Simulated scan of single mutants.
Amino acid sequence: MRLTGLSLHAAHLHLPAHRETADPRTVSRDGYRALTVSADLPPPELAVRAATGALVAARWPASTLDLVAHAWIHHQGHDFWSPAHYLAHRLGAARALPVGVRQMCNGGVAALELAATRIMADPATERALVTTADRFAAPAFDRWRADYGVAYGDGATALLLARGDGPYRLLSVASTAAPELELMHRGDDSFGASPGAVIDVRRTKRAFLAAGHGPRFTRTANDAVCRVVRQALAEAGEPRVHAVALPRLGGAVLDDGYRPGLRAAGLRRAAVLRFGRGTGHLGAGDAAANLAEMAHLRLLRPGQVALVLSAGAGFTWSCLVVRCAY
């Protein structure tokens, strides 16, 4: 989807101060050095802090927001409740439409797509806030061992989108899905009547791999990465790419599921950026966190273009194309 006349006016990453250090085996195997850990704040409060930082940076009053889209993958602190509405309430975004987005780890980009589409289609929607927040607290979630090749950190992100000029121009976003791969996170488990007490991603993945689906998943993932990159670049006008930001996953996952697709898409000279070694995977927030870090570190000069890749269980893959404006 070509994004016409849209800019990113602020990107903010809020990380808890506390970190858990990785053991040498994890550093060697997955590349993570530490994970960010929220000792007390629940995810919606982390999102409030990220959103406040973005609003201050852009000098936008929360009362001027028309849309608040919030994405997450894990428990937000209450059952049968809307964290998106809480966020709008806490910020004072009284006129905004709050929307919750659950597309697993691709939720941040899915929420951005939703906001961008709404702004382009509806003249009455001028300003949108897109947030993500997750906290992977024990004992329900073992952030180091619940999954293969991925360790999970706590944190929140906030993006501000609007028409007109901003520090980063949004050029395009492309997404593709392979819904038959939802089996990876369902495995052999029967449907339950209530949530489980402990999240064990490895159990369903073991069943998926034992059934012989591993090679098909890898092929599908690389084909999807290649396809969304090519589509996003074509819709952006085939700009020269300076850098590619990968999700905050372990090194082996990136080597198997992302790098071959990038090579197949012809991106052999662009710098490959990995930001997650000191945070871990931030749930739905990897893409937005990477945008925020690129902006904070000034990794792009005016006119330079970056790709931001994202994926989530189900499976869906996305590619966002951004250009630094100033």
Rank of each mutant, 00 (worst) to 15 (best):
M1P: 13
T4I: 13
L6W: 00
S7G: 14
H9D: 03
L13T: 00
A17S: 13
E20P: 01
T21C: 00
T26I: 13
V27C: 01
S28Y: 07
D30M: 02
Y32C: 00
A34F: 00
A34C: 04
T36A: 15
S38E: 04
L46M: 15
L46A: 10
R49Y: 06
R49V: 08
A50T: 01
A50C: 01
A54K: 09
L55F: 12
A57Q: 14
R59M: 02
P61H: 08
I73A: 12
H75L: 07
F80H: 13
S82D: 14
A84T: 10
L87I: 08
A88Q: 11
A93Y: 06
A93R: 06
R102P: 00
V109K: 04
L112I: 03
L112S: 07
L114G: 02
I119K: 05
I119W: 05
A121P: 07
A121H: 14
T125R: 06
L129N: 11
V130R: 04
A133P: 12
A133E: 11
D134T: 05
F136K: 02
A140T: 15
A140W: 10
W144K: 03
D147A: 10
A156D: 00
T157R: 08
A158W: 04
L159R: 10
D165P: 14
P167W: 09
L170C: 07
L171V: 06
S172R: 08
P179T: 14
M184D: 05
M184F: 09
G187H: 04
S190A: 15
F191P: 04
S194M: 11
A210K: 09
G212P: 06
P215S: 02
P215Y: 05
V229D: 08
R230C: 08
A232R: 09
P239F: 12
R240H: 12
H242Y: 11
H242D: 13
L246K: 04
P247E: 00
P247K: 01
R248K: 14
V253K: 03
D255T: 11
Y258Q: 05
Y258V: 10
G261R: 03
G266P: 05
R268S: 12
F275G: 07
H281W: 05
H281V: 01
G283P: 05
M294W: 09
M294G: 06
L299M: 15
Q304E: 15
V305I: 10
A311S: 15
A311E: 10
A311R: 07
A313R: 06
A313H: 08
W317N: 02
L320F: 05
A325P: 02
Y326K: 04
Y326L: 08
